[in-house]
Design a protein around this nucleic acid. Structure first.
Length: 760
DNA sequence: AGGGCGCGATTTTTT
DNA sequence: ATCGCGCCCT
């Protein structure tokens, strides 16, 4: 029954790792270089604690991403079995949300409070700017949100903000003198809406612990052992909470933080490596133990040494030298390209070559970039080469309009005070409640100091407007009535029908519309799965399949958290940020140009530049065996061609680690040649093994859409995604076309939008 | 009230 | 280049 004894897994650790695992009492700082077995140390430490008799629920393990939390839980489970589920392991945001749900009443929130995502926050700020008659040219929603967010992350209340001369001065200088009023108003409105934004999940918890000693004591007693992963990415507020939980008289101070200052890449949103330094100071007199994990088990030496060299260009860092015993390995390749397009082609070519020569699987390969917008070229070429790929990041499933629409209805059902959700759906799908009515309702709400939902109910209006409003109220109320008796899925389907959302999306048969239908349906399926998989283990929280629980779960999810069918053999495309914590046999780091990587946003300050360099450090240390860096002399940005120098980071790698053969055939005639299919020998070899063999291959360069008016029934046309198809008939601007080479060959396409080329 | 059109801004990363 | 927003027209 016991999955494995401690001796088994402890023997898998090196001396430093083992010491970090078995030093369970008192404060511990683990400085963990890339690939040094950090996750292994964390999970084994928890497993070890449990074997030493610590109850799983006395352990609080805070991570930064859901992915990291899940991975950790899975790995603990492998060692100690199902007990692992009782460990409080999760992200700061999700665990704190869970606690806040239980304790909400203490701070005047409903336990089914809404979580506002960044879009909701921005939308509310926009509304407030308008309401307060501020000039929206001076008050940009983004900078206001940023300032509010960083105020909260530094424990500055609206009141303290107003008393802070420095902040107030900054605001005056940037022509936002009413900033503090906005902050106060924003806070009040969130509270009134029963809503917390991402920062509130931390900030309100801090307040709660601060103001309620009994609650604080409860969690201090409960969590006897704390662990924090990726400590370099925590902000001041997060550390303050952690400190509150462990730093007090009589505390055993069993806290272990793991991090790497060289991999801190979230300073832009308030993370500070100062926390690591503070941690050392704060726990100095409590016999803090520091362990440095310096052996890299991931990469070969050229890669490791290059990383070491690069990071020495940063001004301050914790001294450490990463080393590897995996041998020299391959040198780092550099691809120079004329254009971003050529960069894409050359990388795709190199991928084919590597697959051929080293028998790499797609999933052992990743292409990384600084900004998500760069993924496009790579997608194009990988598609043409029939290499399966998957893009991470960008718009997450839960940010899609059709998904947010239904979610918004559900949010209002659970919490009618949720103003942002209400605003989104009050007239969507259209039901004759126009802007005029909505702003009158808003005024009423403000004047009477009631919620917007109550204002909708009370709004005095004549015939049609009134009955439209009643129609809306009825949708919400009929679902609310069933909140206690029905599960999340039943309510969701009811709302989808009654609101006419389902109809709205079903009747749109354009390509995009069908995608939305699919998303809409998979949202409903997801809710059904949630209901079916009712496995909440916590006794504290409401272990149920209720709508409220569902909403709180998904609010903190991102794309990454979709269960990836791990078998799928695809090349991974993602931003460098998203790649943190991952590793691949072969890694391509693209777009190494000044103003792109490093980003122009960060170039003017030394701190910004240091962060970009750490980002580069993270990027190259993802590679196990093959590392390829690339840049282009010219690339399209914001619709026009831009020219940039190669990134300074390239010159920071000593040439001894670089493979210069790539340079020799760098900017040659071949790179200027029009894009043709890759060498037949190479494609031919791999084509058979690729996923998605039906995807047609059309060179976008050869594609010239015909005027939509020229298209008639009976013609053969080309479509970029679906390939060749026959136009069956055209009805009211919508063509029915049969594409024989795709799984669902019959498509309805709106001629107005679709780009089709007549071929015969 | 709703739909269409044109302009403008936006583009670093994410819980 | 793409998207969203606001304005104007019906």
């Amino acid at each position: 029954m016991i999955p494995s004894s401690s001796s088994t897994y402890l023997s898998q650790l090196n001396d430093v790792q083992r010491a970090a695992v078995t030093t369970t009492e008192g404060p511990v700082l683990v400085v963990a270089g890339p690939g040094s077995g950090k996750t292994r140390v964390l999970t084994y430490r928890i497993a070890y604690l449990i074997e030493q008799g610590v109850a799983p629920w006395e352990i609080l393990a805070l991570t930064f991403t859901n992915k990291a939390a899940r991975e950790m839980k899975e790995r603990i489970e492998k060692v100690v079995g199902p007990r692992a589920n009782r460990v409080w392991a999760g992200t700061f945001h999700s665990l704190f949300a869970r606690i806040l749900r239980v304790e909400a009443e203490h701070i005047g929130y409903p336990s089914n409070f809404t979580i506002y995502d960044t879009d909701d926050s921005k939308s509310l700020i926009g509304v407030l700017i308008k309401e307060m008659n501020l000039n929206k040219d001076n008050y940009s929603v983004n900078s206001v949100r940023q300032r509010i967010s960083s105020a909260k992350s530094n424990l500055i209340t609206p009141k303290l903000y107003q008393q802070n001369e420095e902040l107030m001065n900054q605001d005056r200088m940037s022509r936002m003198p009413a900033m503090h009023k906005l902050y106060a108003a924003y806070t009040a409105r969130c509270k009134k809406a029963g809503a917390m934004d991402f920062d509130d999940l931390l900030y309100r918890l801090y307040e709660l612990l601060q103001a309620h000693p009994d609650v604080l004591k409860k969690y201090r007693d409960r969590f006897r052992y704390l662990l924090v992963d990726e400590f370099q990415d925590t902000n001041h507020l997060q550390y303050s909470i952690v400190r509150k939980l462990v730093q007090y008289d009589g505390s055993p101070r069993n806290i272990c933080v793991v991090g790497d200052d060289a991999q801190s890449i979230y300073a832009f949103r308030g993370a500070t490596i100062q926390n690591i330094l503070d941690f050392e100071n704060d726990f100095q007199k409590f016999n803090i133990q520091v362990f440095k994990l310096e052996q890299n088990y991931r990469s070969t030496e050229h890669i490791v040494q290059a990383a070491n060299e690069v990071i020495t260009n940063n001004s301050r860092q914790i001294q450490k030298k990463i080393w590897s015993d995996k041998g020299d390995g391959q040198k780092i390749k550099v691809i120079k390209a004329m254009t971003d397009n050529e960069e894409g082609k050359r990388i795709a070519d190199t991928i084919l070559e590597q697959k051929n020569r080293y028998h790499l699987a797609n999933k052992e390969i990743a292409i990384l970039y600084r900004t998500n917008a760069q993924s496009r070229v790579f997608e194009e070429y990988l598609r043409r080469y029939n290499i399966g790929y998957r893009v991470f990041g960008g718009l997450s499933f839960y940010q899609r309009k059709e998904v947010k629409d239904l979610i918004a209805y559900l949010r209002v059902v659970v919490n009618p005070q949720d103003e942002e959700a209400l605003r989104r759906i009050i007239n969507f799908p259209k039901r004759g409640i126009g802007n005029t009515t909505v702003s009158k309702i808003t005024e009423l709400a403000i004047r009477q100091d009631i919620s917007m939902y109550d204002a909708v109910i009370q709004f005095p209006a004549s015939g049609r407007t009134r009955s439209n409003l009643d129609g809306f109220i009825d949708i919400i109320e009929s679902a609310r009535k069933r909140l206690d008796s029905a599960n999340a899925y039943e309510i969701a389907t009811l709302v989808a029908k009654k609101s006419k959302l389902e109809d709205h999306y079903k009747k749109d048969n354009s390509i995009e519309g069908m995608g939305r239908q699919e998303n809409f349906e998979s949202l409903l399926n997801g809710i059904q799965a949630f209901v079916a998989d009712d496995t909440t283990i916590d006794t504290d929280t409401l272990p149920d399949s209720s709508l409220a629980t569902y909403l709180q779960n998904i609010a903190l999810l991102t794309d990454f958290d979709e269960k990836d069918p791990e078998q799928a053999d695809h090349v991974t495309l993602m931003s460098v940020h998203a790649a943190k914590g991952l590793e691949y046999k072969s890694v391509f780091v693209s777009g190494l140009e000044e103003k792109l990587f490093p980003s122009f946003m960060s170039m003017d300050s030394p701190d910004g530049l240091d962060e970009e360099r750490r980002l580069f450090y993270v990027a190259i240390t993802r590679a196990e065996q093959f590392l390829t860096l690339s840049y282009a002399n010219a690339r399209y940005r914001y619709g026009k061609m831009t020219y940039n120098e190669p990134s300074r980071f390239l010159t920071e790698i000593p040439p001894i680690h670089l493979d210069n053969t790539a340079n020799l055939r760098g900017v040659s005639s071949q790179s200027r040649a029009p894009m043709g299919p890759p060498a037949a020998r190479v494609t031919g070899h791999f084509k058979r093994r690729q996923a998605n063999p039906t995807a047609p291959v059309i060179d976008p360069k050869d594609f010239k859409p015909s005027p939509s008016g020229d298209i008639a029934a009976g013609m053969y046309v080309l479509h970029l995604k679906f390939g060749k198809g026959k136009v069956i008939h055209i009805d009211n601007g919508v063509a029915q076309i049969h594409f024989k080479s795709v799984p669902n060959p019959d498509k309805k396409i709106m001629l107005k939008f679709a780009k089709l080329q007549i071929v015969e």
